[in-house]
Deep mutational scan, measured.
Amino acid sequence: TTQFTVHSPEQAEQWKEYAKQKGLEVHVQKKNGTWHVTIH
């Protein structure tokens, strides 16, 4: 599991796309103005 924080919805979307291409599961949670992205 990879977990990191991004600071814009655009970055979060890019990671979603990346994960989809790799066939991975991605979870994005918005918290205090940042987005926590978890890739399984």
Rank of each mutant, 00 (worst) to 15 (best):
T34I: 14
T2V: 15
T2F: 15
A12D: 01
H36N: 06
Q21L: 12
I39G: 00
V28R: 01
H7Y: 14
H36S: 08
T2K: 12
K30Y: 15
E13K: 09
P9K: 15
E10G: 06
L24P: 01
T1I: 14
K31V: 15
W35D: 00
V28S: 02
P9V: 14
Q3S: 14
G33Y: 04
K20T: 08
K31A: 08
H36R: 10
H7Q: 11
V28N: 00
Q14H: 12
K20G: 05
E17P: 01
A12E: 02
T34L: 14
T1R: 11
A19R: 01
E13I: 07
K22V: 08
E10D: 07
A12T: 03
V37T: 01
K22N: 13
H40P: 03
A12G: 03
Y18G: 01
K16C: 13
P9F: 15
A12N: 02
Y18M: 04
W15M: 04
P9N: 11
L24S: 03
K30G: 06
K16H: 05
Q21Y: 09
S8P: 01
N32Y: 06
Q29A: 10
K31I: 15
V28G: 00
T38S: 06
H36V: 15
K20V: 08
V26W: 06
W35T: 01
T2E: 07
G23L: 04
P9M: 15
N32F: 06
V6S: 03
E13D: 09
Q14S: 09
T5L: 10
F4W: 04
H27D: 10
H27R: 08
Q21A: 12
G23T: 03
L24D: 02
E25Y: 13
H40W: 15
N32H: 07
V26G: 02
V6N: 01
K31W: 10
Q29W: 12
Q11C: 14
V6P: 02
V6K: 01
H36D: 05
Q11F: 05
H7T: 12
H36K: 07
K31T: 10
G33N: 09
T2G: 06
W35S: 00
Q14T: 07
S8I: 03
E13R: 11
P9I: 15
G33M: 05
N32D: 11
T34E: 13
K16T: 08
A19S: 04
W35Y: 10
K16N: 04
H40I: 14
G33S: 05
V28T: 03
K30N: 12
H36L: 15
S8N: 06
Q21I: 11
Q14W: 15
V28A: 02
W35P: 00
K20E: 07
W15A: 04
E25T: 12
T5S: 07
T2P: 04
E25N: 10
H27F: 11
P9W: 15
K31L: 14
I39F: 06
W15G: 00
K20C: 06
I39S: 00
E10K: 07
H7C: 14
N32Q: 07
E10V: 07
K16R: 13
T5K: 07
T2N: 07
Q14P: 03
P9Q: 15
G23A: 04
V26I: 15
H40A: 09
V26R: 00
E10T: 06
T2S: 10
T38D: 02
Y18I: 05
E25H: 12
K22I: 08
Y18N: 02
E25S: 11
K31M: 13
T1C: 15
K30L: 14
V28P: 00
H40E: 08
K16G: 04
K20H: 09
V6E: 02
Q21F: 09
N32G: 12
K16Y: 11
G33A: 04
E17I: 11
L24M: 06
T1H: 09
Y18V: 03
H36Y: 15
Q21N: 11
W15Y: 04
A19Y: 11
Q14E: 09
P9D: 12
Q29Y: 12
K22A: 11
T38Q: 05
H40L: 13
H40K: 11
V37Q: 00
K31Y: 12
A19H: 02
T34V: 15
G23M: 04
Y18D: 02
T34G: 10
Q21H: 09
T34K: 13
Q11I: 12
A19I: 03
G33K: 05
H27V: 11
G33R: 04
E25F: 13
T2M: 15
T1D: 07
I39A: 01
G33E: 07
Q3G: 06
A19P: 00
V28L: 06
K30D: 07
E10I: 07
W35K: 00
K16V: 15
T5D: 07
T5R: 08
E10H: 07
G23Y: 03
E25I: 14
K22H: 14
S8K: 04
I39D: 00
H36W: 15
K31D: 08
V6Y: 03
Q14N: 07
E25A: 11
W15V: 05
V37G: 01
H36Q: 13
N32W: 05
L24G: 02
Q11V: 12
G33I: 02
V26A: 07
W35G: 00
K22R: 14
T34Q: 12
Q29G: 05
F4K: 03
L24K: 03
H7A: 12
G33F: 05
Q11M: 11
K20Q: 10
N32M: 05
Q3T: 14
K20D: 04
E25W: 12
K20A: 09
K30R: 10
H7D: 14
Q11K: 07
T34S: 13
V6R: 01
E17T: 10
A12V: 15
Q21P: 02
